[in-house]
């Protein structure tokens, strides 16, 4: 599966009401470590259909960034049953992120 681009309109449907574990990558186009993280997030989406993998552009979706208190990007948030169960601020390896998802 590919990475789903989220907006305030589809966030509830794709993440909060989703029975899958979801990964949300808060990013912006100007952010270096976000660019480094993008292929990792895309690979996870391709290889793990059991997870819903999404991204949110914090410049365009400032209300969501505000709601989830995003102060630094990339912020990688893991949701399960509509709540945040894990969070990582900054880029990280694919193995680390997968282990967080598998433990969710």
């Amino acid at each position: 599966m590919s990475v789903i681009q989220l907006t305030k309109d589809n966030f509830k449907e794709k993440v909060l009401d989703n029975s899958n574990v979801s990964l949300v990558d808060f990013y912006a186009d100007w952010c270096g470590p976000c660019k480094m993280m993008a292929p990792v997030v895309a690979e996870i989406a391709e290889e793990n259909p059991q997870f819903t993998v999404c991204k949110i552009n914090t410049d365009e979706q400032s209300a969501l960034a505000e709601e989830y208190s995003i102060f630094s990007i990339p912020t990688l948030m893991i949701f399960k049953d509509g709540v945040v169960v894990d969070k990582h601020v900054g880029a990280c390896s694919k193995a680390d992120l997968l282990s967080k998802l598998n433990n969710a």
């Binding site: 270096g32 470590p33 660019k35 480094m36 990792v40 900054g90 990280c92 390896s93 193995a95």
Partner: peptide, 20 residues
């Protein structure tokens, strides 16, 4: 300001630039 271990390489944030 940050060094990110990415598995087989490191990302290095130096001011507004990224190095690997």
């Amino acid at each position: 300001s940050a060094v990110y271990p990415m598995g087989d390489y490191f990302g290095i944030q130096a001011s507004d630039e990224m190095y690997e």
